[in-house]
Design a protein around this nucleic acid. Structure first.
Lengths: 238, 238
DNA sequence: TGTACATCAGTGAACGCGCGTTCACTGATGTAC
DNA sequence: TGTACATCAGTGAACGCGCGTTCACTGATGTAC
């Protein structure tokens, strides 16, 4: 119908549509079966196709899984990136990204489990997942970088970082990776505090989603909000 | 042979032995297949038995899984509890328990994934797991409680906790549960900081084990040690 | 515009596999007299 | 101490299931002349 559409022929349009529908149905099944219960046959059945037909779209089950993983990383990356620019001020941006990450995880618990839960046995993530996987951490990195230039990062928070040793070099390497273009470097100790706070975020979300808070802090909205405040202070953001 | 042994008859001894061997073999298989790839048939095969024979020992696959989960919680609980008494001083005890938890997780990654990874789809943990699951958190709770009586907990660390609202009541309920016997209560804000730090611990261990640090902070020994120091300060322990 | 050929989507049958669980059974171990 | 019976461990066959993947095929869609 529309010649401006990405696929020009009916075939190309149908193909793009089905690639989407297959992933959609597969995502729906993730919720029921978990990542390694995902079955091509079941997906095909739900779409009213025969299982062998799926091989026109994905080379194998692992291929489909990879597509789902990439989509999940990208969706989370989108949410995190959007949150960075949703408010002003380093501390508020940091909090906004934390809230966005949690909101995405609560809305998509099975995709969250797919990328941050226990690894699927026998599945080896291909190179193609690395880029999408790094988008969410980069959103945090961007906040830090900007906070350095704007003076919104205090240098004296927390216990001092040893100035030598493996941790110092690991942190330096990461800081270098962050300093794409001519952005100023983030001090190693702030970077390490940020990483600690970043792991805190995911520990909390995992505990909430995987049921470790049942009977104590569930629902965890307030605990989460409080933790985010504490962690923003801990990182040294203003 | 030995009449003092728990099982008196040859049958009882053989039975106890096999219960152990089945779990042992099942644990070995967890490492390869993951929790929901665990197969009774494969376990039986490795033990040179026929699959139906396992039903003399475990009522079902889920039963065996439950036994493994209970064992894992208990092993972690043992490690954490032992660490509490391995050193003196609240701060050093806290750090010791953190290190013990991580050491156990690194030594038993698949059992860690079993209890702190994504939930096994279709498996509902029975009541029997609750007790063992709470032993590790209780080890941390004990340190807090003792730190209150000995004055090793500062009251003024971190951002203040809202004195009313859901978080305050959740924390109060948890404090009440901790105050078994006539132990003094732990202040709500310290308790919440402890919970935040506890989630940090598991976020970090999960990232390390599940491969999120690959290419940056792996090996994570130094990052971990530093984080523990920071978190001990954050909780307010001396 | 119409026809001949190439491309591709989807079918249906088949291969070979592994799984959890049930059941009637054999034979060894334990118990009571 | 010896015998009769009960208990239990382990066997082997079977049920019914679902899976990923391959392959030769039909028929529809697209392309070149």
């Amino acid at each position: 119908m529309n010649p401006v559409h990405a696929g020009h022929t009916a075939r190309e349009r149908a193909r793009a549509e089905l690639l989407r529908e297959i992933k959609e149905e597969a995502r729906r099944q993730l919720a029921v079966t978990g990542a390694d219960g995902l079955s091509l046959r079941a997906v095909a059945r739900s779409l009213g196709m025969v299982s062998s037909a799926l091989y026109r779209y994905y080379e194998s089950r692992d291929d489909l899984l990879t597509a789902l993983i990439v989509d999940a990383y990208n969706a989370l990356g989108d949410a995190a990136t959007a949150a960075v620019f949703s408010v002003d001020g380093a501390a508020r941006r940091w909090a906004a990204v934390c809230q966005a990450v949690r909101a995405w995880a609560l809305a998509n618990p099975h995709e969250y489990a797919l990328i941050y839960g226990s690894p699927v046995p026998g599945y080896r993530a291909p190179e193609a997942t690395i880029g999408p996987a790094s988008r969410m951490p980069l959103a945090f990195g961007r906040i830090l970088r900007d906070a350095v230039s704007s003076g919104e990062l205090s240098a004296d928070a927390g216990d001092p970082l040893p100035s030598e040793g493996p941790l110092a070099s690991q942190a330096a390497a990461l800081a270098g990776a962050l300093a794409e273009a001519d952005a100023p470097g983030v001090p190693a100790d702030a970077l390490v505090r940020a990483v600690i706070s970043w792991t805190q975020l995911f520990g909390m979300i995992s505990f909430e989603l995987f049921g470790q808070f049942v009977g104590s802090f569930q629902p965890a909205d307030d605990l989460f909000a409080h933790a985010v405040t504490q962690m923003t202070t801990f990182v040294g953001l203003r």
